[in-house]
Design a binder for these strands. Sequence first.
DNA 1: CTAGGGTTAG
Length: 630
Amino acid sequence: MFGCNKKLKFLSTTVFSRPRFITVLPSSLLSTANPSVSFTKQAHACIVVSGLHGNASFLGHLIALLALCPSTPLEYSFAIHQTINNPPVFMSNNMIRCIAKSESPRKSLVFYSDSILRSCARPNNYTFTFLLQACSKSLGLCEGVQIHGQLLRLGFGQDVYVKNALIHFYSCCCKVESSKKVFEESPQRCDVVTWNVMLAGFARDGELSAAENLFVEMPERDVVSWNTMIMAYVHNGKLEESLDCFRRMRECGLPPNEATLVTMLSASAQLGLLGHGRMVHSLIDLFNIPMTVTLGSALLDMYAKCGCIEQARIWFDKLPRRDISTWNVMICGLASHGLAKEALALFRRFLNEGLCPVNVTFIGVLNACSRAGLVKEGWRYFRLMGDVYGIEPEMEHYGCMVDLLGRAGLVSQAVEMIESMDLSRNPVLWATLLCACRIHGLEEMGQSIGHKLIQLDPTYDGHYVQLSSIYAKSKKWEDVVRVRKLMVERNTCKVTGWSLIEDQGMVHRFVSGDREHKRSLEIYKMLERIETRLAEAGYTPNIVSVLHDIGEEEKEIVIKVHSERLAIAFGFLVTSSGACIRIVKNLRVCSDCHEFSKMISRVFEREIIVRDVSRFHHFKEGKCSCADYW
DNA sequence: CTAGGGTTAG
C-alpha cells in the first residue's frame, strides 16, 4: 500500500519501544530516497501519537521531508509550521524550501519577511540559498537583488552554496553579466557546481563561444558539466557539435547518465541518424540506466524520427511506464509516417485508458486526419479539442486544418478559415495552401495566394520558387521570368538544401551539384548507371519540370544534380543489395526527385526512406507512402 | 539537523 512500509516500521518501533534512540529518527527518515506525502503523514501520525508534536526539531524534519515530496499541498506544511511558537530558523528554512518548490514560489519571500524578519530571527546561508531558488523560479529579479544585498550585509557572500544560487538566479533572470560578476569575484571560493551554473548561464544566454571557453578552462568536469555543454550545442542548433562533444565525453571514460542519453537521443532524432541513435540506445543497457518515462519517450522519438516507426512501436508496447508525452510522441510519430489509421487507433486507445489529451496530442491527431484525407473526422476532432477538452487551437492546429482542407481540394474553405480566424498575416498557412493549389492545379487561386505570400514574407525565396512553378504549370513563361527576377532583385535569403546519409557512424552531407565528397567520381558514375537503368525502364525526366517546375531546393536556374540523388547514389555504393537507403533532407522533396525515388524503389527493388522537412516518404515497389501529396 | 547545477514531445 505504501512504498515506504519498511522505513515506517522502523520509525514506529523506534518511537514506541526505543525512545532513547529517538534522535536517530529524523536522519533515518531523511535518508528516504523518494518520500511521499502519505509516508510523511504516517510519520506525522507517529510523532503525534507518541506525544512529540511539540518538538520543533521533529516537525522541522517533517517539513524537510515534505520539501522532498514531488508535490505537497502547501497548507499541510504551513499547518505544521504554525503549531510552533517562534520556530527555529531550521524549521523556517525548510518551510521556505517547500514554498520555493511549490507552484507559487513568490510566497516564500512573504513568508521570509513575516516569519523570519519580523521575529528578528537570524537568517543563515541555507535561508538565502532557498530564497534565491524561489527568485530564480519566479524570475523575481527585483526581489532577488534585494536578497543579494541583504546576504552581503550579513556576510554570506562567500558561502559557496549561496554564491552558486546567486549565479544561477541572475542567469535565470537573463542577467548573465551579473552572474559573471559574482562568478569572477572570488575565484578561489568555488567548486565544480559554480563552474557548471556559470556554464549553464552562458548556454541559456546563447553565448556558445563563452560557454566553450569556460568549458575548456574548467579545472574539473563532472557529468553535469558535460551534459550542460552537450545541451548547449543541441539548444543552439549545433547538433553535429553535440555529437562530437559526446564522443569526447565517452573518450574521457566518464559514464553518461539519463540526462546525457536523453539529450543524445534527441540530437540523433533531430539529425535523423539511426546508427547513432541505436548506439545511444545500446548505452542504456551498458550503463544500467533505468528506463524512465523521459528516457523511454526520447527513445521512441528517436526511432520515429529516424524512420524506424516499427521499432518505435515495439518499444512503445515494451516500455514499463508511459505518460502523456510518451503517447504524444507515438501518435505524432505515426502521423508523420502517414500511418493515419494506426495513429487514430492509438488515440482512441489513449482516450479509453482515461487519459486527457493536450494540445500536442491533437496536433498528431489532426495531422493523421490530414494525411489520410479524413475531412469529417478532422473537423470532429478539431471541435472535440475545444468543446470537450477546452484546448484553444494554436497556429499549428490551424496549420493542420488548412493542410487537411487544402489536401482534400477544399481550398476556398481553407481560405475562409484563415480569414475568419484573422490569421491572414501568417505566411505558413498560405504556403500550405499554395502547395495545395499547385497539386490540384488551381492556377488562378495559386497565383493570387502566391502574390499574397511574397508580400507577406518577401525575404524567403521558397515562396517565389513555388509561385514561379505555378506559372510554369500554366506555361506563362514571362511570369516565370518576372517572379524569378523579383526574387533575385530582392536578395532573398536562401536556405541551402542538403541531403544527408549515414554510413558506419559517419555523416555524409550533400548539396546540389556537390563535388566535394572524396568519392565524388564514383558517386556520379553510379548515378549515371542508375539513370541509364531507369531510362530503360521508362523513366523520362520531365524537361519542363527540370527547367521551371523546380522544387525549393533549386535556387538557381542552372540545372544541377539535386543533393537527394547524390545521397541515393552514395547509398548504393555503401549499402548491400536490397538494403534500405535512408536519407534526411532539410527541405521539401522536389517532384522530380520524388518520381525518381519511386522508380528506383521499383526497378532496383530498394526501399528508400526519405525524411523531408515535414514528413516521411517511404518509397517501395514504385509507390510512396505520401500518396504523392506533400 | 537543511543546500546547489543539467532532461523529452509538434
